[in-house]
């Protein structure tokens, strides 16, 4: 890790909270607060101004989407703070809601299982802190598996969809080229086609917009 991050963690299960703290501190980051509910998350985020928050979605009292709502509130008040949401399972409602708030700092949606793959998790955390959008590959695979026969995404070729899916996972063109075993130029061509087919506003960050369009289309 290039620079140590200041992090606030919110997770109601004590074992996992401790595990997260252990992993992040071992990686050289500073966990400025580790709390068990959304209210405490809001309080400590406001007072400590961390670089990134890592929060469980499902927390007391209702165990539904407290973490997500707290994240939306934090995004509204402190748009520069990066957010990593952890979910125990794939629920598309989350993805859709998450995307509504994607302006500002980076955002990540990861399954909890990802955390145990420590290197991958730290890597994702780094990308989110750098302003990237990261959606768990498992979630992306799920969304990809869904049949789509409407919307602009229907116009994409299977290859372009593959490229877009990798973009959604936060990969850059060279990495995508490596993944698909094609040249970087080929990837650039696919990306260009995607932008054109999705009719994206050239003034916006088209890469992010494409991913959003993709995920929105997939999660409806």
């Amino acid at each position: 890790m290039t620079r140590p991050l200041r992090i606030v963690i919110a997770e109601d299960a004590a074992l996992l909270r401790e595990g997260l703290v252990g992993i992040l501190e071992k990686a050289g980051h500073q966990v400025v607060a580790a709390v068990a509910d959304a209210d405490a998350l809001l309080v400590y985020t406001a007072s400590h101004r961390p670089d990134v928050i890592v929060t469980d979605i499902r927390m007391p009292p209702t165990h539904t989407d407290e973490g997500l709502r707290a994240a939306v509130a934090i995004r509204a008040r402190h748009p520069d703070i990066a957010i990593v949401l952890l979910s125990a399972y794939i629920a598309e409602a989350y993805v859709a809601e998450l995307l509504e708030s994607t302006t500002g700092g980076g955002i990540g949606y990861l399954l909890k299982d990802r955390v145990s793959h420590v290197r991958e998790f730290l890597d994702n955390l780094g990308r989110v802190t750098a302003g990237g959008t990261v959606v768990d590959p498992e979630v992306v695979r799920h969304l990809l598996a869904r049949r789509r026969n409407d919307g602009p995404l229907a116009a994409l070729t299977p290859r372009e969809r593959e490229v877009l899916a990798l973009m959604a996972e936060g990969y850059t063109n060279p990495t995508i080229a490596e993944h698909l075993v094609v040249s970087e130029a080929a990837v650039r061509k696919h990306v260009g086609n995607i932008f054109a087919k999705l009719d994206l506003d050239p003034d916006s960050d088209r890469r992010v917009s494409a991913v959003l369009a993709y995920l929105r289309g997939a999660s409806r």
Partner: peptide
Amino acid sequence: LHDGAQQRLVALTMTLGRAEL
């Protein structure tokens, strides 16, 4: 199951992940 065995298993995988490093 969610609050018990499942949390422990998640914690176990995290610990094993740290051990790998």
